[in-house]
Amino acid sequence: MSETLVRVDLADRSYDIVIGGEVLSSIATRLSGIVKNGARRVFVLTDENVWDNHGDALKSHLATGGIEAIANILPAGEATKSFANLQSVLEWMISHEAERNDVLIAFGGGVIGDLAGLAAGLMKRGMPFVQVPTTLLSQVDSSVGGKTAINSSFGKNLIGLFNQPALVLADISLLKTLPPREWRAGYAEVIKYGLIDRPDFFEHLEIATPDILSGDVNALANAVKVSCESKADVVSADETERGRRALLNLGHTFGHAIEKARGFDGSVLHGEAVATGMCMAYRYSRELGICPGQDVVRAERLFETSGLAPTLSALNTGSFEAEELLEHMFQDKKVESGSLTLILAEGIGKSFVQKGAEIAPLRAFLEAETKL
């Protein structure tokens, strides 16, 4: 398949997302404009699963350009996004005498990308980093836009900064080793773009989902391309999430609360929680009288078709308490002056930001949701 370029336009911090079937093979050439002063090494942050599946290929492709990979291999899973690992990664690079002109490659999913981006931003006040996302979720969402973070005991992604990558290489072939559950979780973020502001894309997914989830390369590459274009447009207009970019958090306020209620223990993956959260956002919008019921049904149906849970009970991880979910929602990054911000919808492709959400109807809604 041919390669596709999507440009994230941020003036002097602009960069390309390269999407294709074998783009990893060209990594040494593409790094030539990023690796400075003739450096013959790069730092690679990855996890055990990715390194076992793709580490040899990465090392081989880098070696064609005479570049050595100095790798730090971490455990897979959300728990890796911790203060302890952030410190460990920074000290690992310092021990290898990392310089500001060195490059850090994030070779993994969203967890590795978030941790690597934050470490790169902090290392000697900033070193370049390159995203090589290896999951569907990270290819269409977390690798693009410069959000980097680790988790706190109080909630998800509360410690971080905006740090744009120098390049994103989205190699579709890397997705072949993904477990089906990871595929489905990542697909939630693809559906999100249709629900936010691309109703035509949502309609396309209603037809194309079986082909995409079966691994059809062209159908998948097109879904990744449209998702990246959608996110690039939003990020270019609102890099630091002061306005429209908050729409990308559709379902996340509910979803992060679900993850936190399960202690980030892996029983609910991020994409699974966000899928349920998006359905909750649509149902709450219906409860408020602003979203047609037929659009709620369409959203729920597409998530179900994709093997994702539209309700809390469908997650099959036990019961949830409304008050606990509400408490976790108030740890969300979008809380302003003690008031909750929600991303709601007036219909498919018509999402909007609601600041100062009223608590009484939200509490009643959560009470009902936990009993579905």
Rank of each mutant, 00 (worst) to 15 (best):
F303Q: 00
V274S: 02
L5M: 12
H256P: 02
V89P: 01
K156N: 08
A257R: 01
G117E: 04
H54E: 10
D114T: 13
I290T: 01
V297T: 06
S285N: 02
I112T: 12
E346V: 15
T253H: 00
A299H: 00
E323T: 13
L45E: 07
T209E: 10
E68S: 14
D47Y: 07
E239Q: 13
L137R: 08
I290A: 03
I94K: 01
G20W: 01
D171R: 03
A39G: 08
S351A: 15
I196T: 12
A357L: 12
S230L: 11
V23L: 10
I258F: 10
V140P: 02
L158T: 06
I94F: 14
Y282F: 13
L74I: 13
A28F: 02
R7K: 13
W51E: 13
L167C: 03
A368S: 14
S2M: 15
K147A: 12
L315E: 07
R244Q: 05
A188K: 08
A208R: 14
E336Q: 11
I67S: 05
L195F: 00
E367K: 13
K231C: 08
D16T: 11
A28Q: 06
A57G: 05
P199E: 02
A364C: 10
S153E: 11
I343T: 08
G338T: 08
